[in-house]
Design a binder for these strands. Sequence first.
DNA 1: TTTAATGATACTATAATTGTATCATTTGTC
DNA 2: GACAAATGATACAATTATAGTATCATTAAA
Lengths: 132, 132
Amino acid sequence: MKLITRETDYAVRALMCLANNQGMVMPVEKIVREIKLPHAFARRLIQVLAREGIVRSVKGKNGGCELAKNLDKIKLVDIMAIFQGDVCLNECLFKKNICPNRSTCPLRKKIRAIESLVLKELRSITLATLMH
Amino acid sequence: MKLITRETDYAVRALMCLANNQGMVMPVEKIVREIKLPHAFARRLIQVLAREGIVRSVKGKNGGCELAKNLDKIKLVDIMAIFQGDVCLNECLFKKNICPNRSTCPLRKKIRAIESLVLKELRSITLATLMH
DNA sequence: TTTAATGATACTATAATTGTATCATTTGTC
DNA sequence: GACAAATGATACAATTATAGTATCATTAAA
Ligand code: FES
Ligand code: FES
């Protein structure tokens, strides 16, 4: 049961890499050299981050990318949302018919509560936190 | 990002079904009729639960299965472990080399903390809770 | 004009999840 | 003992999600 997929993992690593070079535009090639991940995968990944406004990219020679926001504005949970969709720990175990009192169902409440806990924690993790 | 797979979901439903018929041995056929799930899938699922000692099964005519433990001894987290493996929300995002201070890494601590929270909550959910 | 970069996007491979099928074994009942 | 109704064990197939690859177009500095 993975909370974070490898793609998110890579993305965060790449972002940390950019964070270490703030102010400079860094080509994907360089990121790939610093953190070990497949080249083509990295390309696509950065393209997505650029489209999502997490990084700013510069085309052409001497191009590359840099963080588009402040470290403390880039949340882990947002990166997760981009690559894995929203954090949603299963809406209802028992889809309709088994549970007669859906609105007051204790399990439903519990799962929701767990989700809130996880979200609260995840929201508190930013690139700034990670770089400490 | 699913915390619970469909197999676990089905398993819990089936167990709740058995809980509603405590003291009686119930054939899988009957479970399948009560909660909607594929017959062959249910067969295999119950077989696993029997092997794991969650239900007790009776072979032969008039056979079937029943809960092997008290409602409050059957934890959601154990059913999850059987069908999905241990709850482990990603050991370390950055596998070695990126994080220099592995032992004090703040992210590591955070992820671990989230895992503990989730586990604590999950452990408190038993069949008894679910039947309330 | 060449070169080094990104943008867009289609494709393949692998693994996990979900679902199916078969045959053997057990046990109550006629 | 034969039959029927159940589980045990286990192999297989289908679908979906994740992980990874490849290609061609576009941009801009040198
Ligand atoms: S389990 Fe879903 S409403 Fe009760
Ligand atoms: S991120 Fe894993 S040790 Fe720091």
